[in-house]
Design a protein around this nucleic acid. Structure first.
Length: 846
RNA sequence: GCGAAAGUGGCGGAAUUGGCAGACGCGCCAGACUUAGGAUCUGGUACCGAAAGGUGUGGGGGUUCGAGUCCCCCCUUUCGCACCA
């Protein structure tokens, strides 16, 4: 140990030693309890950014903590190495995506090592390597066998900038998740994975993880799946044997239906209009709506427009005939593509009805609290529609609803759907908003979809023994909307596995979110050549105990990986429903945008990025990590500050200097000492030491890392104030200093591991930090005396020092005996005295 | 527009969950050591006030002996959703 703190030297030394001694290699059959700490794997863009530094500092702190506590920790890393930027580099600069990716990985691996992250590098994986994506393809075939991977033509989200299809999750809000471009709709034939068949479980199983995942993430997932309970109801088309089925969650409002409204794409429309003069008008309308939907950004809600078809439908409850309209606000993708329009009780129908002067008939009355059963007459007439200024959408009491009048909405909903079912014109139903996952991408740099198209046999899955379908070395990267693979004859042209006849390969590749849906299972058994992983090994490590990443994946990655896990369970690979017990979504790292007052995520384009390498060079990885964890709670936004990190360096330097000063005395002197008669300062230091251990140990459970660091600083401050110096200290002083300093050093390791190891070694320990986490002694942590605040009428007026075990009565007497209190109480009447044991006394006077 | 969360010093943030508001750090101020200080060390630092004292957790009201914390109304910010019947 040098006298001065040189981070670069210390960090190099320990990084080398950790590597040589395989310090962080996880052993599968270690008998100790396991802990799986996982951070979201990075895309190898080439450079670590501060968001990575934060993510991996949090995960690494936890991994260190658990290791120091004696857990068998799995803490792996890998590369989400398929995807768009590599292909863009190929298009723009003509580089080979594979070379580009491998170089980036090499550079970023170096950066992660310089940051000192404690990964088990022997388990590193990368999605773009055939030994990995072979298993993407294997899973795809498994799904195909079960009808869960299928091909269909449908309107899909198309990003015009990136020239590729996106899934619904990737175009949430109508914009491309990566570049923010407004997405268009295109009709294309694409491969889908049947996420909808797990819709119910994706909602229901939330209750298994609700204690460990952030509420907001679960809320977004639940909203995304969009489970909705209601009923299908069939409206007969008048003078026809056709029926129009609608979905409604408000069957109780059906007597107020004054129209049926179809989506412009509704399949029955063509037939309804046969021979009608309106056919051309409606076709033109449909084309216009389609065009608008294809190009409009979703920020603006389109003006509602519609056309009356002139055809009538019959309300099965009332027998009444209502007109059938077509309108742009009814979506073909949801429910049945047709709705019953109830203007009085639905905002959208209300707006539409006003515009086209459709009748607005109130059939639900608010439940009055003073008159629980509102008289229909109170609403203004029996069957006359009243003037309404907006729709009444709450539940209430049915009126103008034939035999159902007077019932509450809740009751009516149940009874009316049962009635519809009994009479054969409907049934209770549950619908979901989630759509199947479109996974085809018109890209080169992804896992090829393992399918062959034979002229005779049609669509044929690639046989398992021919996996992986390997990407060709390169292709012609034109940047057009077709997969570059289509331009590689050696790849495309093949023979049919069935008949050996001429055949073509599928040229689309898979969405890269496929790769990341199951990667953390592969870490458990990363070199398996016969299966994605061995279930027995995976069982030892999974589920993931703590997952850490940004909340930008709250819907995309995290819903896909839940889906994938449920599928793996169904084919017998794992034996649980949910892959991740606890999830932390860390906040963004932001920096001021130069010349403005705005704080935004660091990015190259804004020029507000901070280069982790420069930071490590200037301050050291230990200080960088310490600062990032101290500066804000892990889930908050972290505003970058140069002076903050200097504070972290100062702290480390002071601790280091203290260890250096005490080193000789501590390593030479016996660990035994007579501590029977410690002075008050020494006892106070021990108390602080044990309080700090207790605090930090429990803070780690909630990942309250910023307050842990604050507690370390407090302990250090008290240690500095402790009146002892290495020359004149008594053996008893040495004992308490050692206890405090060693606890401080060990507990610093999760935050600043290199310097902690260095100091631990300097304090005479051989073989590096192991399961050395200190244990708090509650007796030593307990206070010897309490300072009880005394209030008069709720205002702090004095304090008394008491023994912790003082009785309530004694405390009351002590409070009232206090001089300041007596002065205030003098001449007044004491109404009462509130005594909170060990806490406070409040004297109420008048 | 709908929904959710959050508003605490100059700043990031603490507060054992209804009991001493402002821990810890940054910044700032003063002093020490220095040829020098953007190094280091020591002390100070919510606001008003000369002081005694008073005020104070976005604003207003309420519950309570006692409210940053609970309830109601309002304002602001951030995030999510975007016609999902």
């Amino acid at each position: 140990m040098d006298e001065k703190y040189f981070p670069e030297q210390i960090e190099k030394k320990w990084q080398q030693r950790w590597e040589d001694e395989k310090t962080f290699h996880a052993v599968d059959d270690d008998p100790r309890p396991k802990f799986y700490a996982l951070e979201m794997l990075p895309y190898p863009s080439g450079f670590l950014h501060m968001g990575h530094v934060r993510n991996y500092s949090i995960g690494d702190a936890l991994a260190w903590f658990k290791r120091l506590q004696g857990f068998n920790v799995l803490h792996p890393i890998g590369w989400d190495s398929f995807g768009q930027p590599a292909e863009q580099a190929a298009i723009k600069r003509g580089v080979n995506p594979r070379d580009w990716t491998e170089q980036n990985i090499a550079h970023m691996r170096g950066q992660l090592k310089r940051l000192g992250t404690s990964y088990d590098w022997s388990r590193e994986i990368a999605a773009h390597r055939p030994d990995y994506y072979k298993w993407d393809q294997w899973f795809f075939l498994q799904m195909m066998e079960r009808g869960l991977a299928y091909k269909k033509t449908s309107p899909v989200n198309w990003c015009p900038k990136e020239e590729t299809v996106l899934s619904n999750e990737q175009s949430s809000g109508g914009v491309c998740w990566r570049c923010g471009t407004n997405v268009e709709k295109r009709d294309l034939e694409q491969w889908f994975l049947r996420t909808t068949s797990y819709a119910e479980q994706l909602v229901a199983d939330i209750k298994q993880i609700e204690d460990g995942w952030p509420e907001k993430v679960l809320k977004r997932q639940s909203d995304w799946v969009g489970r909705s309970e209601g009923a299908y109801i069939d409206f007969a088309v008048k003078d026809s044997d056709r029926k129009i089925r609608v979905f409604t969650t408000r069957i109780d409002t059906i007597y107020g239906a004054t129209a049926i409204v179809l989506s412009p794409e509704h399949p029955l429309l063509e037939e309804l209009l046969a021979g009608s003069g309106l056919k051309n008008d409606i076709n033109a309308f449909r084309e216009r709506v389609k065009l608008e939907r294809a190009t409009r950004g979703d920020e603006v809600e389109a003006e509602k427009e519609g056309l009356n078809t002139g055809v009538l439908a019959v309300n099965p409850f009332s027998g009444e005939s209502v007109p059938i309209w077509v309108a742009n606000y009814v979506l073909i993708e949801y429910g049945t593509g047709a709705v019953m329009s109830v203007p009085a009780h639905d905002e959208r129908d209300f707006e539409f009805a006003q515009k086209y002067s459709l009748p607005i008939r109130q059939v639900i009355a608010p439940v009055s609290h003073t008159q629980p059963k509102a008289e229909p007459s109170a609403i203004g007439g029996s069957d006359q529609s009243v003037e309404m200024t907006h729709a009444f959408v709450d539940y209430g009491v049915l009126i103008n609803s034939g035999p159902w009048g007077g019932k509450l909405s809740e009751t009516a909903i149940t009874e009316m759907s049962a009635y519809a079912q009994e009479h054969g014109f409907g049934e209770p139903a549950v619908t979901y908003r989630i759509r199947d996952w479109g996974v085809s991408r018109q890209r080169f740099w992804g896992a090829p979809v393992p399918v062959i198209y034979c002229e005779k046999c049609g669509t044929v899955p690639v046989p398992y023994d021919q996996l992986p379908v390997v990407l060709p070395p390169t292709a012609d990267f034109t940047g057009t909307g077709e997969s570059p693979l289509a331009g590689v004859p050696e790849f495309v042209n093949t023979s049919c596995p069935n008949c050996n006849g001429r055949a073509r390969r599928e040229t689309d590749t898979m969405d890269t979110f496929v790769d990341s849906s199951w990667y953390f299972f592969r870490y458990c058994d990363p070199r398996n050549e016969d299966a994605p992983f061995d279930s027995e090994i995976v069982k030892r490590w999974t589920p993931v105990d703590q997952y850490i990443g940004g909340d930008s994946h709250a819907v995309m990655h995290l819903i896909y990986t839940r889906f994938w896990t449920k599928f793996m369970r169904d084919i017998g690979l794992v034996d649980f429903d949910e892959p991740v017990k606890r999830l932390l979504t860390q906040g963004m790292v932001t920096n001021r945008v130069e010349g403005t007052d705005e704080w935004k995520a660091m990015s190259k384009s804004l020029g507000n990025g901070v280069d982790p390498d420069e930071m490590i060079a200037a301050f050291g990885a230990d200080a960088a990590r310490l600062f990032v964890l101290f500066a804000a709670p892990v889930e908050n936004e972290l505003r970058w500050s140069e002076s903050g990190i200097e504070g972290a360096v100062r702290f480390l330097r002071r601790v280091y200097t203290m260890v250096w000063r005490w080193q000789e005395r501590l390593t030479n002197e016996s660990r035994e000492a007579d501590i029977a008669d410690l002075g008050p300062d020494a006892r106070a230091l021990r108390r602080k030491t044990h309080q700090t251990i207790a605090k930090i140990t429990s803070d780690f459970d909630q990942l309250h890392l910023n307050t842990s660091v604050a507690a370390l600083m407090e302990l250090f401050n008290q240690l500095s104030d402790f009146n002892a110096d290495p020359v004149s200290a008594t053996p008893a002083d040495v004992f308490v200093v050692r206890e405090a300093l060693e606890a401080l050093v060990v507990m610093l390791a999760p935050f600043s591991p290199h310097v902690a190891e260095e100091m631990w070694e300097a304090l005479g320990h051989v073989g590096g930090l192991k399961a050395d986490w200190p244990i708090a002694d509650p007796e030593l942590a307990a206070r010897e005396e309490l300072e009880i605040p005394i209030q008069v009428n709720g205002k702090l007026r004095s304090r008394v020092i008491t023994a912790p075990e003082i009785s309530e009565d004694e405390l009351r007497i002590a409070a009232l005996a206090d001089e300041k209190i007596r002065a205030l109480v003098d001449g007044k009447q004491v109404v009462k005295v509130i005594v909170v044991p060990r806490r406070l006394v409040n004297v109420v006077i008048r």
